[in-house]
């Protein structure tokens, strides 16, 4: 196949529209589901990481760094193929995919939350404690309201990346958009059109979200 001799033809894709739509639904479901679960994991991890007790923080540091410093693709493959051997229980693909994606993005969220809280000036703690607030009250009424504002932009960026990250679950046969693309390719032998279409769909979903994220960021900056 030479570059000049190839005739592009996207028309056959129409026949696969329901498959593509199902794939997109799965991709969006994994994105939203793992963002929510990841946020729970990240919130708990990020706030507990602020503890001064190393018995609490050491395992959390280990978790965050292991997930941040290994490739997501390797994590997915390892949880699906290696973990069942270690624990002696089979893990279905959708469970492994959800688990890894949530833990992976949760590690990043944890750092965003910890960083946001730590970015608030020491003087805010001093002033709040000086009028008699207890630790939890300082956190709830003084630190978090300010920190959340600073966490929103990195949180949105990480969540946008998460939608793209879900494409890696296709490697363990979870039927997301990319996986449906490989199915269509296998049936039609037209990978160029199929992967072009897949790329365009990701772009159509993500581009408006990045614009929205920029606008939120600008509005937050103005409100300061």
């Amino acid at each position: 196949m030479t570059g000049a001799g190839y005739t592009w033809d996207f028309s056959f894709l129409w026949a696969y529209r329901s498959l593509i739509l199902t794939g997109l639904e799965v991709t969006i479901a994994y994105t939203i589901g793992t963002i929510v679960l990841g946020l729970v994991v990240g919130l708990v991890t990020g706030l507990l990481r602020l503890s001064r007790n190393p018995i609490i923080t050491a395992p959390l540091v280990a978790y965050v760094e292991i997930f941040r410093c290994t490739p997501l693709l390797v994590q997915i493959v390892w949880f699906y193929y290696a973990l069942p051997v270690v624990i002696g229980v089979d893990i279905p693909a959708h469970v492994a995919a959800t688990l890894v994606l949530s833990l992976y993005t949760g590690a990043f969220y944890a750092e965003i939350i910890r960083g946001g809280v730590n970015s608030i000036e020491r003087g805010q703690w001093d002033a709040a404690r000086a009028i008699g607030m207890r630790r939890g009250q300082v956190m709830r009424h003084v630190i978090l309201p300010q920190a959340v504002k600073r966490m929103i932009p990195p949180f949105m960026n990480q969540s946008i990346i998460q939608l793209k990250n879900t494409s890696l679950v296709s490697t363990i046969a979870v039927a997301d958009l990319l996986y449906e693309g490989t199915i269509i390719t296998a049936a039609t032998y037209r990978p160029l059109e199929v992967y072009t279409m897949v790329a365009i769909i990701y772009f159509i979903v993500l581009f408006p979200l990045t614009i929205a994220a920029q606008q939120v960021e600008r509005r937050l900056a103005r409100a300061d």
Binding site: E121, G123, Q124, D126, A127, A128, R129, A130, I131, G132, M133, R134, V142, P145, Q146, K149
Partner: peptide, 20 residues
């Protein structure tokens, strides 16, 4: 500690007002 601090007012060099 919180109860003790509540009975003593403190004013700081850099004000430390709650900006929100």
């Amino acid at each position: 500690l919180a109860a003790f601090r509540a009975a003593t007012g403190m004013v700081f060099q850099h004000f430390n007002l709650f900006p929100h």
